[in-house]
Computed example of a mutant assay.
Amino acid sequence: MPPRPRLSQAAVEQRRQDVLHYVAEHGETRIADLAARFDVSLMTMHRDLDDLAARHLLQKVRGRAVAFPALTMETATRFREGTHLAAKTAMCAAAVERITPGSTLLIDDSTTLFPLAGMLAGIDRLTVVTNSVGLAQHLGAVPGVVVTLLGGHYHSEFNSCTGPDVTRTLTRIHADLTLMSATAVLKGRLFHPLREYAEVKEAMLAAAGRAVLLADHSKFGKAATYAYGTAARYQEAITDTATPAAETEAFRALGVAVTTVGTD
């Protein structure tokens, strides 16, 4: 039998993300079963799991791959950054059309907004205010963009800042446009598992002249511990075509314009 063609690094990373999602969904899985499911050798699966474990995305324990607790999986930047990337990119491309030269933007720490950084080149005199260290680093290489990082209590797990220093600074800022995502959305209500992040989102909404929510289909139909209002606080929501119709209709019932994007 001829050897299999060597996969590109992108294809290997996609397989590893698929493995990660499978383990997260099942809690824990035998490594041999994962190798059979993804049709790779046991050695290859061990390499995949070693890579994911080195990034603290899962654990390898005595022949098994074990997921981290749900809260960590839902909120940790290292997990979220590689998920649903096509949908995130398409939503950010739609959001760029709402940004005008000379604007001040407020952007939260949602990895949904990370692809936006590479799309802002060519829009003159932009100021971006964010609590995300990761996004600030991405934006630092974009010419013409002035970045203000909201400092406060730093969370290494999420590579961003929260706390009274962040929310107090936001009371002194007026933004033309706020772009945010949500961890969980249920029938028009917005949720986050961590109180301090919900408070930052509320403060950003209060500082915005206009607010747009970007959330892919995976965010809908679920709730978390802390509610922070409804989608009615946004003028528009951008999502992908896989979002259930009942959820988008709940937004429209609240008077929120909904834009859906394809991910091809």
Rank of each mutant, 00 (worst) to 15 (best):
G140W: 03
G63C: 10
A35F: 11
T89P: 02
G118M: 12
T77C: 10
L116R: 06
D124S: 11
P101Y: 04
H56M: 09
L126P: 04
A136D: 05
S103L: 06
L58Y: 02
S132P: 13
V66F: 03
D124Q: 08
N131L: 10
H56I: 05
L113V: 09
L135S: 09
R64P: 01
A65I: 10
D39T: 15
L57Q: 14
L49Y: 02
A121Q: 12
I123D: 02
S103M: 15
P115R: 10
M43V: 13
G102K: 00
A94F: 06
V129E: 04
L105F: 03
T83R: 15
T89K: 08
L106Y: 04
R98L: 15
L105N: 07
T72K: 14
L52W: 08
D124V: 01
H46V: 07
T130P: 05
T89I: 03
L57C: 08
T111P: 04
T112F: 06
A53L: 10
G63L: 11
T104G: 03
M91I: 01
M119N: 02
S41Q: 11
I31N: 06
T83I: 11
H46I: 10
G102W: 01
I107P: 03
A90E: 03
R62E: 11
R47D: 08
V61G: 01
L106N: 07
C92M: 04
D108S: 07
R55N: 12
H84P: 00
R80A: 15
Q137I: 13
A136S: 15
L113P: 03
D48P: 09
A53R: 14
V128A: 13
F38Y: 12
G140H: 03
A65C: 10
A87N: 00
